[in-house]
Design a protein around this nucleic acid. Structure first.
Lengths: 190, 190
DNA sequence: AATTTTACTTCAAAATTTGAAGTAAGTTAC
DNA sequence: GTAACTTACTTCAAATTTTGAAGTAAAATT
């Protein structure tokens, strides 16, 4: 059985596509059935990818909503993610590229908009004048803080007890592993 | 400690952004340090979202490469994901929307391209002539089969033992939970 | 000093996504 | 039975995001 799974995928509770889970946060956040899978199906590499795509889409639209509430009009959710990627450190464009697996021209474009909007400062490095040093302005920090603040509610819903924490941790690590495996495969072939 | 984490995030091994993990599949696929976190940092809701974004980006480019290898020129990775979402069942556009949290006009657009490329068949339902029934053609099934086949190698790398399987399962379930929480929040507010 | 490499930017084109408006079929309420 | 409404989808134009090719200037190498 394990052998077969190793070849083909992973067992998981619940149907992959039908959303039979209840449709309200109070209920879906409950633990019923979560720890003790009943009937199981097989998840492949692709099912995971599809799940990731869906979750990503949901988050993007959530972020868009959050930003609309904050009255941010000059930049979109993608730019906000770049802002969050910068965080509270000063870094070069190259470092930022690594942080998000962006493409250079893409980041360059976003940084231009963020600089125009006054969210970041861009200074040529003293030691290497090719390299631009990026950091958030007051305004940029404020936006990040607001977004993080709005996110607090989700943290509370998602991480309710030690069990949740463990699962989130495992999910994070597993995604990191996917990131490495898929990334290396793209560069060196599997 | 737990109380603080519940409010702010989740403990995880390793730095979030620096990729100090080795850069080759052989090494990164190893288990060293994976089960026993040493130094820990806090992951928030946002770090998870950023991770998901990165992993999604990586997968998309992998899929693009895979499709180039297969000589697919008429549709892109996004359309291929739609194809995979359809799978081996016949369904309506509405059902497909639910499967991927797509927007209607978007799917409509993709379906048009997929139909033009001969990857899907589209028949008006007998019972309700507004509703289009979608299913893969021979060609569509072939592409899906090829992609699934290419994906087999990743399944083997990602799911090497029972421990990996457990982690992948937990990651899948946790992402599903994120999907529900973020989705409900978008519709009803948190 | 010439050449190559690095670190980025620019620009145009392509791909993806959104949103508003439309159509046609089905449903409901007179 | 028909007017009004809803559902299931499509179309189109615009916005956003992403890619890729070409460029620039500084640094490193030869």
């Amino acid at each position: 059985m394990i052998q077969k799974l190793l070849r083909e995928g992973v067992e998981v509770e619940t149907s992959i596509d039908g959303y039979e889970a209840a449709d309200f946060p109070e209920i879906t956040a409950e633990k019923q059935g979560h720890r003790h899978p009943v009937h199981t199906v097989v998840v492949t590499h692709f099912e995971l990818a599809r799940m990731i795509e869906r979750v990503n889409r949901r988050f993007a639209s959530l972020l868009r909503t959050e930003m609309t509430k904050l009255g941010i009009e000059d930049v979109g959710p993608a730019q906000a993610m770049v802002l969050m990627a910068i965080g509270d450190v000063e870094l070069s464009v190259g470092e930022l590229l690594d942080r998000g697996h962006y493409v250079g021209s893409n980041i360059s474009y976003y940084l231009k908009q963020l600089a125009d909007g006054g969210y970041i400062d861009r200074v040529a490095s003293q030691r290497d004048k090719r390299s631009a040093r990026i950091r958030l302005t007051e305004k940029g920090e404020q936006l990040c803080a607001n977004l993080r603040n709005a996110g607090g509610a989700y943290n509370r819903v998602l991480a309710r007890d030690a069990d949740d924490l463990r699962n989130l941790e495992i999910a994070f690590q597993t995604l990191h592993r996917l990131e490495l495996v898929w990334g290396n495969a793209a560069r060196y072939g599997i």
